[in-house]
């Protein structure tokens, strides 16, 4: 359960602080599939960073499973990320010198999970994304779709409750994008809370609920199926 109350995030830029998020309140239920949409600069990424405990709100409250995390220390936030949150990025963020297997191992290495345990969990995670046979390939030997599947395996290997995906299909063709979304949705069906930031109304329409942001505020909350297929949130620039 995610509870945001009056969350604000501003950056001290010059005399006037730059406000990226102003007064955002939302509840995200456990196991929900939420899409965050809006034009570039609307605060989607800022919101995702706060949800992912990569960043802290400058005002307001963020409770994760009833615990206030908005005011935690940096180290405590690392701990929350390590155990409760998985990230999937548009650009995959795989480490080029490491094989698929080693990339998936990374979060467990940081968490100090013993080697034997690690091996078993990596196999399970790679199996879930259908890449066991590619385990010892490096990212530059994998297709974009495969890279993103490795990234999903990495994001889920610590068995988090929440998966945050920032434009997960943004660098992929339609077929691969579809495959990735199915994978994410299957994990959501297994109980994982899924938050996807996207420009793509087709993805928005598949979600349980869509939050539309504009200028740092939630301007619309609609069930995904009610999102109009021609809703466009391309860059205003």
């Amino acid at each position: 359960m995610i509870e945001l109350d009056g969350v604000q995030r501003s950056y001290p830029v010059g005399a006037e602080p730059l406000v990226a998020l102003k007064d955002v309140s939302a509840r995200i239920a456990k196991g929900e599939y939420l899409a965050v949409m809006g034009p570039s600069g609307s605060g989607k990424s800022t919101l995702l960073n706060i949800l992912g405990c990569l960043d802290r709100p400058t005002a307001g409250s963020y409770r994760l499973d009833g615990r206030e995390v908005g005011t935690l220390s940096a180290d405590a936030l690392s701990e929350v990320r390590r155990h409760h949150i998985g990230f999937v990025f548009q650009s995959f963020h795989l480490i080029g010198r490491l094989s698929a297997h080693e990339n998936v191992a990374l979060p467990m290495l940081l968490a100090g999970i013993p080697e034997d345990d690690r091996r078993a969990r990596i196999s399970t995670a790679l199996d879930a994304v259908g890449l066991v046979h590619r385990a010892h390939h490096r990212p530059n030997e994998l297709s974009g779709g495969e890279c993103q599947r490795v990234a999903i395996a990495r994001a889920t290997v610590m068995r988090p409750h929440i998966l945050l995906a920032d434009e997960p299909t943004g660098n992929l063709d339609t077929a691969n994008g579809e495959q990735i979304m199915r994978l994410l949705e299957r994990m959501n069906a297994d109980g994982l809370t899924l938050v996807v930031v996207t420009h793509d109304p087709n993805i928005g329409r598949r979600s349980d609920r869509v939050l539309v942001l504009r200028d740092g505020e939630i301007v619309q909350r609609v069930p995904g199926r009610e999102l109009r297929p021609d809703a466009l949130f391309e860059s205003r620039a």
Partner: peptide
């Protein structure tokens, strides 16, 4: 830098 960001995202502390 990107790798550092990723490591932080998957739970590495600044000290680590």
């Amino acid at each position: 830098v990107g790798e550092i960001g990723l490591l932080r995202a998957v739970g590495a502390t600044a000290r680590e």
